[in-house]
Design a protein around this nucleic acid. Structure first.
Lengths: 127, 127
DNA sequence: TCAAGAATAAGAATCGTTCCTAAAAATCAA
DNA sequence: TTGATTTTTAGGAACGATTCTTATTCTTGA
């Protein structure tokens, strides 16, 4: 646990449920450790994703987002404003049948798209 | 329907079920129209995605893939070799419950990850 | 205490993709 | 048909996100 990794961990904590991009994590981490480099943030985030401490969320036409909440849950992306919302795992059911038996399924990523309440009311916000 | 779009359409037909990247479509399109430019391929693909003639498949850590088969089906990505396999729609079931009613769900993308038969037998191939 | 390995800062390089510009082609109006 | 307007294109520069390189700074432990 280096000071840099600690800064990334703290940044993710500070980000709360906002599903920040690497760039945002970098900005937050700098408050804890002003000398930290963007590359270091990317490297630590990637390692943490690999080790399962953090989840990487792929976004169409945008930078990856990161989630320190590794409890089982999935995400909905608002196509209006780009915000990502959480959905508890037990509210999502995915079933795939008739998969050839020599193919080993590893896992599913479900990304739902939505218009959030704000965007429905006030029209698409940026992005 | 310009000659360039025709070349892209033919390239996609040539690609069959291989879920090609834009770069691959470009290579195939060149056989039909050697002077076509990469930017033109990207532009035509994007238009066709927008108009619903073609499906864009997002891949973690890699270039987008394109699928001229717009029948309802989903995809599994082999994390060993990067190949994408089709799953018929009626073999996939996704359900999301307890979505706040002021949030309007648009659609789901399910990307499953697997180890395909080849990679299970012969170990991870590249990528 | 020193050597060997791991992690870092800084910025260059890379990759996939989009944008820009000038030229060519298609469309339309009279 | 002719000219004007619009659309599309080729080619390559530019871009954003991410990874890589290099030289330097920590760790670690014999």
């Amino acid at each position: 646990m280096t000071a840099q990794k600690m800064a990334v961990v703290n940044a993710l904590r500070d980000a709360g449920r906002t599903h920040p991009t690497a760039e945002t994590v970098y900005a937050l981490a700098k408050r804890h450790l002003p000398t930290i480099a963007l590359g270091t943030v990317y490297r630590n985030l990637s390692k943490m994703v690999e080790s399962g401490e953090v989840v990487r969320i792929l976004v169409p036409d945008g930078a990856d987002r990161f989630d320190a909440d590794i409890s089982d849950h999935m995400h909905i992306l608002c196509i209006g404003c780009g915000k990502i919302y959480d959905i508890e795992e037990n509210n999502v059911k995915v079933e795939i049948s008739n998969v050839p038996e020599d193919v080993q399924l590893i896992r599913f990523d479900v990304m739902a798209k939505c218009l959030c309440a704000d965007c429905k009311q006030h029209g698409l916000n940026k992005k």
